[in-house]
Amino acid sequence: MIKTDYVLVEGELGRIKKNAKKIEANYDVTITKKPEIGLTMLKAQDSVEHQEFFLGEALSIECEVALDKTVEGIGICLGDEPERAYFIALFDAALKIENNLKLELLQFIEEEYLDILKKEKTENHHILKTKVDFNLMD
């Protein structure tokens, strides 16, 4: 669940759309809640005394769908990305149904995850090049 959300939130929208179209082609899709922006209050805590406090709000968007009027899907993500929220909801519902399409979607999730990981590792490589190598002065 979390991995699927992670991929659909961080992944490339064009490829996600391509797979979301497969869901639309296989089911009767009803948008039960149109994408709607709102706020998510972020809770934080200090690192020593663990005092909780509210850091601030983040813009978020949620959307809900039903496949064949029976299987519900909920999509939520940060930002004003109605299309992405809709696709997350589609995947959420489609992955509840055991069939070949689910396997296909899961394979896409795995492939996309590796691609996201590669991008993150690339950024991490650049960051690690700024690690200080201390040498004692003569």
């Binding site: 706020l39 998510t40 209050m41 972020l42 809770k43 934080a44 805590q45 690192s47 850091l55």
Partner: peptide, 30 residues
């Protein structure tokens, strides 16, 4: 932000496990 409704409260964010982009200390060298 005052025009929008609050839909969610997040779980407490985990800064210890953040994806670190920069991290320094002025207290310890190593």
């Amino acid at each position: 932000r005052a025009t929008l409704s609050r839909k969610f409260y997040s779980e407490t964010i985990d800064t210890e496990n953040m994806f670190v982009k920069r991290r320094i200390s002025a207290s310890f060298k190593d």
